[in-house]
Each structure stands twice: as C-alpha cells, then as structure tokens.
Amino acid sequence: MLLIECPCCGVKAEETELSPGYEAHLKRFGPGSTDEEFEAYMFARKNPKGVHFERWRHAYGCGKWFLAARCTATLEVFGTYPAQVGEPPADIIEKIKARRPDWKGYK
C-alpha cells in the first residue's frame, strides 16, 4: 500500500487516506476545440510503465489535491507538489533525471 507525502499538510498519508485522480498536467479543451483536441483531453490518457505524473487528493486529510511524480513499475516516488502549477517543478525533474538517466521527459 502506497505511502505518499501530501505537500499541502506534510502528512505521510497511506493510500487509504488518499483518492486517486488520473493523469496530471492535463490541458482542458472546451467549446471551440476540435474533435481531436477534445478526444486527446478527455480520453487519450498516458499510462506509461515508468515515470508518471498523477493527481491525488488527500481526501481523508486536508482535502487538497496535489501532484505526484512516481514510477509505475517500481513505485518509487520522486516527489509531490501542490496542484497549482502548469508543469512539474525543476527540482523534481532533476531528481527524476538523476534516478532515470534514460527518461525522455514529462511531455
């Protein structure tokens, strides 16, 4: 059972205190977008074996959504950060690069 530190309140929460929320850093496409854009936003979710950025909510805690960088194969957690950012923080990118030299970046 995963143990993930909530960056908003600092609690190392076990998985039962959290609720998952799929891929992070999605860009919303609303009215005016093409079918392809909307499909990509709505349905074409990443599911990599390896480094992944995902949303979690500290549902049984401070209630805040946050983002986590995690390896889906080894379950290593590279870091967590508040949700109010457009892309992963530089220090987490650096940490992932150090741990996974052949990683191709988050895009």
Partner: peptide, 13 residues
C-alpha cells in the same frame, strides 16, 4: 463538493 474543489484547486485556482 469534491468535484467543486477539484476545479477550484486544479483548474481555476
């Protein structure tokens, strides 16, 4: 309530 907080925290913060 969770749905509201999701949009307020993650999209229109």
């Amino acid at each position: 309530h969770g749905w509201m907080e999701d949009w307020l925290q993650c999209e229109w913060w």
